[in-house]
Design a protein around this nucleic acid. Structure first.
Length: 861
RNA sequence: GCCUGGGUGGCGGAAUUGGUAGACGCAAGGGACUUAAAAUCCCUCGGUCCUUGAGGCUGUGAGGGUUCGAUCCCCUCCCCAGGCACCA
């Protein structure tokens, strides 16, 4: 047999067979263990990129592996098809978002199918279709009823030129990305989901998700940001209503000498009204609203404020505290007001220095005395309280509780818990999203759309210009309606939902994608498949998407729609795919094929190689999967994505590396072809008779590699080392002296090795594996073949190497039988010629023995 | 700035629990095969020094510490990446 490896032919053939036989379609089967493997579904941007290829290849290997382990594997794919890019394409090129989206989906589906992923395509869903989002609207009604969806005023980025709302990413250095106008803030009535109603459960379960990376759980905990402290009230000098603050540092209250209010807090203008400072305050507030929120709370940003010509009183010292509006205080955390203790908070210290405000030391560090006049920075560490009335001399940490109780007793405070997590704003003033099912009536207020009127379908005939209000707000037939309560004229809500809402329950829908009766999820099917056993996606989703999906799951559980507390039992967060950037002085960033031999294809100038960054269209450092498939085949692309780095790390793209993967696959193909005629009729070695020499070593290696590949995939998803192990096995096979045609035992051992190689590689490179399997005379599909097992006895080494150290440095090695005793190994170490030379006549102080690994002899001098 | 990770040969990476640093692959160099080239197969490959050896020293971002022993644990610092609530 001498057929040449022809990836295109083989791959298309097997993809056809899998589709025809519906190999990967599944149904609930209570008799079998289920395994739900899910990769984050893509936004249909037009073409798959290498990041998708990597993500879905990782998932496919696990899906195929689990299938071979006997699990009933659900492995679905769909489209997160609402979102801004469709609208931008419509504005820029005049294509309707639905046409653009569906064309993209068709192309990306073709690309994914050409990669040979083992999806159950019958379960494909697309979130922009009414049969998907109608259920989301139903859930919204339920949320509205329970007070989990509510309206409040909130600010958005607003471009006064385009008269439109901008996403944060559409604001570049404070300017609109489309027109360059200065972006401001605008207050709008917006819909929110009350994620904070579940904050405690979301936090608590962070400690009950052992299958999640610690890193992600830590990020989520910090995001939720639970802190214990006090809510304190400070009386106003003029007798107005008290100012309330939240603090975790009530131990420093005796040092509070001024009050800070977030510039955008409504109280600021209220206090300034009618005073001489009113105009200055107004100007300051406008200025701060334009500052970047992230920057203005940074340690190095200039602390600025304006005096409101008003005072409040420190409730324990009666100190007359001036009140300032400040840029570094956030309106939406705590109460938006902060008691300032300049001696023990660095930001307050800088503010006090700048505006020449009083400083009182209330925590004394051990051993020194702080003088407010000479301090150059705040003292933020522990110490003993001073100038703190009855609490003088207490350790500040112990005083936290005592002072909180004291403040409660005098009616000035209350111990509280504060969270950083805010409610989830879901209103988008955009077209391409799921309509929010609410009608606004002048008489009846915000009225939910009656259930029988769902879905509220997004109209097709729409005029997208990129300017003005939301397109739906200009679509009369859409928004002009009647109130379901009083039948009077009413206005339909024209905001659409954040696309994170769709991705918060799509995994449930995959369990019953065709269900068309309320609530769109068949409880029996959902109960069989959920939760997702393994979820795989980019680390960039560590907080938002994953937290929203967890919240939504808990809520649907409370609605009785699903039966699980958490959606994802195990989570794998993969790193990003990066590639070096290339620039031409004249033509800017270049695509890889625009550079030839280090020169720009347009002008011949020398190309500058830039730093390696995440692959993106704007940097043009992208690789086209279609081109790679055409050149090498899907199997090579799959293998390289897995081989170049473990999944959780960033992957640096390398064209030479792809060549290497192709070479290995071809090398494997060749050796199987080479042996094929001799082993076609042979059965794998069954263990009868003693083996010696090469054959014994080959068989041992085979079983070692089965063990290694199994644990690499099962325990840690390290496909790169699994592939390395198979490469070693192929190398050993090449180096094994070829058994004669008459050597039945030798050929049986080779057959065992070759079958192992093919089966172990099959989840990674399924097409070539199926083909070789067939050529080996097998008639059952490899995809349904059982994963191989290893024999620990055969895999065991007979001899081991013991490292000999003197004072921790390797000086010699000895080879001993694997079961050699400690005493004999130590004796051999002491007797070793090189070790004796190193020890010389120095006295031995200590001898460390690590079983089966090393002996370390410690000597003086 | 805040939160979370990461830094190992010329390059991607390996070392699974504190125990042989550099598996496997790429690049490079050499050899075999070939009329030749490609392909293929085999060998060498961290740095440095010398007495060229089963050699010495050195080496996992930098500096310190703990330990018989540190890529791994602790402290300080530098650099890079992701997230930061309207990109998904």
């Amino acid at each position: 047999m001498n057929a040449k490896y022809a990836p295109q032919e083989i791959e298309e053939k097997w993809q056809r067979i899998w589709t025809e036989r519906k190999t990967f379609n599944v149904t609930e089967d209570p008799a079998r263990r289920k395994y739900y493997l899910l990769e984050m579904f893509p936004y249909p941007s037009g073409r798959i990129h290498i990041g998708h290829v990597r993500n879905y290849t990782i998932g496919d290997v696990v899906a195929r592996y689990k299938r071979m382990q006997g699990f009933n594997v659900l492995h679905p794919m769909g489209w997160d098809s609402f979102g801004m890019p469709a609208e931008n394409a419509a504005i820029d090129r005049g294509i309707h978002p639905s046409v653009w989206t569906n064309d993209n989906i068709a192309n990306m589906r073709r690309q994914l199918q050409r990669m040979g992923f083992s999806y159950d395509w019958d379960r494909e869903i697309s979130t922009c279709e009414p049969d998907y989002y109608r259920w989301e609207q139903l859930f919204f009604l339920k949320m509205f009823e329970k007070g989990l969806a509510y309206k409040k005023r909130s600010s958005v980025n607003w471009c006064p030129q385009c008269k439109t709302v901008l996403a944060n990413e559409q604001v570049e250095a404070g300017l609109c990305w489309r027109c360059g106008a200065e972006v401001g803030e605008k207050d709008l009535e917006q819909w929110f989901f009350k994620i904070t109603a579940y904050v405690e459960e979301l936090l608590e379960y962070c400690d009950r998700l052992p299958g999640w990376p610690e890193q992600v759980l830590t990020m989520q905990k910090n995001w939720i940001g639970k802190s214990y402290g006090c809510e304190l009230s400070f009386p106003m000098e003029d007798g107005r209503e008290d100012i309330r603050v939240f603090t975790t540092r009530q131990d420093t209250i005796y040092g509070a000498t001024f009050m800070l209010i977030a510039a955008e807090h409504p109280l600021v203008m209220e206090l300034a009204r009618g005073k001489a400072c009113e105009a200055d305050v107004q100007a300051f507030v406008e200025k701060v609203k334009k500052q970047d929120k992230m920057m203005r709370t940074s340690d190095y940003y200039d602390k600025e404020g304006v005096f409101l010509e008003t005072f409040c009183l420190n409730p324990v010292t009666n100190f007359r505290m001036p009140i300032y509006a400040a840029n570094f205080v956030l309106a939406d955390y705590g109460t938006g007001c902060v008691m300032a203790v300049p001696t023990h908070d660095q930001r307050d210290f800088e503010f006090a220095e700048r505006y020449n405000l009083e400083k009182i030391v209330v925590i004394q560090p051990p051993g020194t005395t702080l003088d407010p006049k000479t301090m150059t920075e705040a003292y933020v560490d522990e110490g003993l309280l001073v100038h703190s009335g009855p609490f003088d001399g207490m350790e500040n940490l112990k005083a936290l509780e005592a002072i909180a109780e004291h403040l409660e007793a005098i009616g000035r405070g209350k111990k509280t818990v504060q969270y950083r997590l805010r409610d989830w704003g879901i209103s988008r003033q955009r077209y391409w999203g799921a309509p929010i099912p609410v009608i606004h009536c002048e008489k009846c207020g915000s009225v939910p759309v009656p259930e029988q009127d769902l879905p509220v379908v997004l109209p097709r005939d729409i005029d997208l210009t990129g300017t003005g209000e939301s397109p739906l707000a200009r679509h009369d037939a859409f928004w002009k309606t009647i109130c379901p309560v009083c039948s009077g004229p009413a206005r339909r809500e024209t905001d659409t939902m954040d696309t994170f809402v769709e991705s918060s329950w799509y995994f449930d829908r995959f369990c019953s994608p065709a269900c068309n009766v309320k609530p769109g999820l068949d409880r029996r099917q959902v109960d069989y498949w959920m939760p997702v056993d393994q979820y795989i996606g980019g680390i960039e989703h560590a907080i938002l998407h994953l937290l929203y999906a967890r919240f939504y799951t808990k809520m649907l559980r409370d609605f009785g729609v699903v039966g699980v507390d958490e959606p994802f039992t195990n989570l794998l967060t993969q790193g990003m795919v990066c590639k070096e950037t290339m620039r031409c002085a004249e033509h800017g960033y270049l695509y890889p094929d625009e550079a030839r031999d280090g020169r720009c294809a347009h002008c011949g100038r020398e190309v500058q190689i830039g730093k390696t960054e995440k692959m993106s269209k704007s940097l043009k450092n992208v690789v086209d999967p279609d081109y790679l498939i055409q050149k090498y085949g899907a199997d090579t692309v799959r293998m390289f994505c897995l081989f170049a780095a473990p999944p959780e790390k960033d992957l640096e793209w390398s064209d030479q590396g792809v060549d290497g993967s192709f070479r290995f696959i071809s090398r494997t193909w060749r050796i199987v072809m080479d042996y094929l005629d001799d082993i076609r009729e042979t059965s794998p070695f069954a263990g009868d008779g003693e083996l010696t020499g090469d054959l014994k070593a080959l068989r041992r290696k085979t079983h070692q590699v089965i063990r290694k590949v199994t644990s690499d995939i099962e325990d840690r998803f390290h496909f790169n080392t699994a592939i390395s192990a198979v490469m070693e096995l192929v190398n050993v096979l090449y180096q094994t002296k070829r058994p004669e045609k008459s050597d039945a035992v030798g050929l049986a051992v080779v057959r065992e090795t070759i079958e192992a190689i093919v089966v172990l590689l099959s989840p990674i490179v399924p097409h070539i594996a199926e083909e070789l399997w067939t050529l080996l005379g097998k008639t059952d599909a490899l995809a349904d073949t059982a994963w191989p097992t290893f024999d620990a006895g055969i895999a065991a080494e007979e001899e081991i190497t013991i490292v000999l150290q003197v004072n921790g440095k390797v000086r010699s090695r000895i080879t001993v039988p694997a079961d050699e005793s400690e005493a004999r190994i130590k004796a051999a170490a002491r007797a070793d010629k090189r070790i004796c030379e190193f020890i010389g006549d120095r006295p031995v102080i200590k001898e460390v023995y690590v079983p089966k690994k090393l002996v370390n002899i410690v000597v003086r001098g």
